[in-house]
Simulated assay, not measured.
Amino acid sequence: MPVTESKALLPAPIDKHQPTRQRLWPLWIITLLALALAVALALWSWQQWNNYQSLQQSIASLESDTEQLDRMYGQTGSEQGQRLQALEDKLADQRELIATQQRQIDHNARELLEAGNRTRTDWLLAEAEYLLRVGNQRLMIEKDIRGALAALESADEVLAESDDIGVYPVRQQLAKEILALKGLADVDRTGLYLKLEAAIDSIHQLTDNALVHDRAPGFVSNNESDSPESNASEPGLIAEGWHKVKQTLSQVVVVRRLDEPVKPLLSPEQSAYARLNLQLMLEEAELAVLRGHQELYSRALAKASNAINNWYDSSNARIIALSKTLDELAEKNVDPELPDISRSLELLKARLAGRLDNGEGDTPENSNDGEQGDAS
């Protein structure tokens, strides 16, 4: 058998290779990659959580800001509403004021238009009316007889200058009222007030020497009881001895008579109180003079006179002068009965109304025609 054939019939040889070691580095790479991926995923999750928390905080802050803004806008809206209401009220007041001013302007324009058509007689009558108003005010409110008389006399002169025969009844009534005022005793309120002020100044100058001391009624010392007549009535030595005895007794004994009321002595505090009390009484009299209150005036002066008689020495020169001044002031009448002088003003108003209603003030010719009609 040939060799080639024998070899061909033999089983195929088996290659004997040495076993090789398994490589693990890819597994490590995968593990590392997985670990890195897990760490990255954890970091990303932590970052997302932080972002979520920040977002939640931002949302909460936005909600709080939104609520605050809502409250703020609510208050602002309320304030704006109040301001708008106040502005509307103010605007209404301004409109009312403008309307009032417009009415006043219209009234003044009509008055000026009528004034331009008035004659000299109308102006004189208006001046006389003003003077009569002043006279009534002086007499009724201020009780100034002299001022009221001057105003009425001036009004009569103006009416005489007007040459309006229609004012004859007014002048007739004015003559009666002027005569009534002249028959009143004018009250010099300024002079009475100044006299009372002088009396108050004299009270401030009073010292304790003017108070009642040893000269009070009912006080008699032993020295005063030793009159020359009593000594002269006793003869010689007996009189001399009796005089010496009385001089000795006068040094230790004081005799007071109780059959007359004794005025109390005043301490310095009581003296200041007495002066203040007198000042208040005289100030009350001043107020009564200004108000024209006769009863209050008389009562205040009576109380002041009684206080002076009770607490001060009647032989003091200042007290004598003050008492005399108060007695003179007590005789004054500060509230005379005042006559009614308003009738002349009413008549003049009626005359002015008649001239305006009849259109007598339009032209001088109409004014003359009206005077002729009154004369007829």
Rank of each mutant, 00 (worst) to 15 (best):
T4D: 10
E5H: 14
S6Y: 05
A12I: 01
P13D: 06
K16G: 04
K16P: 00
Q18L: 07
P19K: 13
P26E: 02
I29Y: 02
I30L: 13
L37A: 14
A38V: 12
A40K: 05
L43M: 06
S45F: 03
Y52H: 13
S54Q: 11
L55V: 01
S58P: 01
S58C: 01
S64Y: 00
T66G: 11
T66E: 04
Q68A: 12
R71M: 04
R71E: 09
G74F: 01
Q75I: 06
S78C: 00
S78F: 03
G81R: 11
Q82A: 11
R83M: 05
A86P: 01
L87W: 02
L87D: 08
D89I: 04
A92W: 00
Q94K: 08
I98R: 15
I98Q: 13
Q101L: 14
Q102M: 08
R103D: 08
D106F: 02
D106Q: 14
H107S: 13
H107D: 08
N108L: 11
L112I: 14
L113E: 05
A115F: 00
G116C: 01
T119K: 03
T119C: 03
R120S: 10
D122C: 06
L124F: 08
L125M: 12
E127N: 14
E129C: 04
L139M: 07
M140V: 11
D144H: 06
A150D: 10
L152P: 10
L152K: 13
E153T: 12
E157C: 02
E157W: 00
E157H: 08
L159F: 03
D164P: 08
G166C: 05
V167T: 15
R171T: 09
Q172S: 13
L179T: 11
A180E: 10
K182V: 11
L192Y: 09
L192N: 12
L196F: 03
A198G: 09
A198V: 08
T207D: 07
H213N: 13
F219V: 15
F219W: 10
F219H: 13
V220Q: 10
E224P: 05
P228I: 04
A232Q: 12
S233E: 10
G236W: 00
G236F: 00
L237M: 09
A239T: 07
K244R: 14
V252I: 14
R256I: 13
K263V: 02
P264H: 09
P264I: 02
E269Q: 15
Q270S: 12
Y273P: 05
L276R: 14
L278T: 02
Q279K: 12
Q279R: 11
V289K: 04
V289I: 06
G292P: 05
H293A: 15
S298T: 10
L301A: 06
L301M: 04
K303V: 04
N306C: 02
N306R: 14
N310W: 01
W311S: 14
A317T: 09
R318L: 04
L329S: 06
E331R: 15
K332A: 07
K332V: 06
E337R: 15
S344L: 02
S344I: 04
K349T: 07
A353D: 12
L356V: 06
G359P: 02
E360T: 08
E365Y: 07
S367F: 02
N368T: 11
Q372F: 06
A375Q: 09
